[in-house]
């Protein structure tokens, strides 16, 4: 007990002495008598303090990351939303660009005499039917021709108020009269027709039949639609896989379409 109380008493002395020393140092430094001491301490301990301070700052920044975790998460979510908005805008831009290119092509090819309805292609699993978002409301009727520029796409097979289905040449019920031209021919009217033929859809693709045995049709020649149902000339594709059976009176082949029907975004429906 005595030990303990004497220790307390001694600690009290330390406090009193600290106070006295503090006042002494304050007065002496106030009069500028301790500049040498200050320089010595500064030379020795400032580097230690600097290193410790740097370490503390680094650790503090590390903990600050955890403190700001909520803010980071909010910022991340905001950026994610912004990214979605940008993606949507980019998708809109792509649609507009595609539409613009299709319109330019349509105008450049001089199809000014007819009335065309611009329709967007709707996706589905069908490979030989194309769904479009325009219907009888836009004066589209069954049998109307669907094209992009002067390239044939198909014929409207059924019409609803706000949508239609287009029968593609690859459809098995599609049968069209065509002409085959030399691949170098740019102008249909002036070019020599190599042969008349008939294209029909099949499971293997667009089949072309009844090519005259005597004609000089070769792979790569261009196939143009020349059918009363369609009216006018529309490009369809190129001859591929030409085969001739000596026992037969005509050649058969397949048509590689100019357009990739799976990637179409906009088409034009000729309504007049």
């Amino acid at each position: 007990m005595k030990n303990s109380s004497s220790k307390v008493e001694n600690s009290n002395i330390a406090i009193y002495l600290s106070l006295v020393l503090a006042i002494v140092f304050l007065l002496m430094d106030g009069f500028g008598n301790l500049a040498g001491l200050r320089n010595g301490i500064s030379f020795t301990f400032e580097p230690i303090s600097f290193q410790a301070n740097s370490a503390g700052t680094k650790v503090g920044e590390y903990f600050q990351t955890f403190v700001n975790l909520g803010a980071f998460r909010k910022e991340f979510n905001d950026l994610k939303i912004k990214s979605y908005e940008n993606e949507t805008q980019y998708a809109n831009y792509l649609v507009l660009k595609n539409e613009n290119e299709a319109l330019k092509k349509q105008i450049a090819l001089g199809n000014k005499g007819s009335k065309y309805i611009l329709a967007n292609v709707l996706r589905d699993d069908n490979v030989d039917i194309l769904l479009i978002d325009q219907g009888s409301e836009s004066d589209i009727r069954q049998g109307d021709v669907v094209s992009v520029g002067n390239v044939f796409v198909g014929i409207v097979s059924s019409v609803d108020l706000k949508g239609s289905s287009v029968r593609l040449p690859s459809n098995e019920s599609s049968h069209l009269e065509v002409v085959v031209l030399k691949s170098e021919s740019d102008n249909v009217a002036k070019a020599n027709i190599l042969s008349d033929a008939v294209v029909s859809g099949s499971a293997e693709g667009i089949k072309i039949e009844n090519i005259s045995m005597n004609s000089s049709v070769a792979n790569g020649d261009i196939v143009y639609i020349n059918d009363s149902k369609v009216g006018g000339y529309f490009a369809l594709g190129y001859i591929v896989g030409l085969s001739s059976n000596p026992a037969s009176t005509y050649k058969t082949a397949f048509v590689s379409p100019i357009l990739d029907y799976d990637n179409l975004m906009q088409v034009f429906v000729k309504v007049e």
Binding site: S11, S18, L21, V24, M28, D29, I41, S42
Partner: peptide
């Protein structure tokens, strides 16, 4: 004293700030 120099205080400041609360605690 060392901390006074590091913090650029007048010498004795830290000692005073330590001693007064300790005196109150005592």
């Amino acid at each position: 004293l060392i901390l006074d120099v590091i913090y650029h205080y007048v010498l004795g400041t830290n000692l005073l700030m330590v001693a007064v609360p300790l005196l109150i605690m005592m």
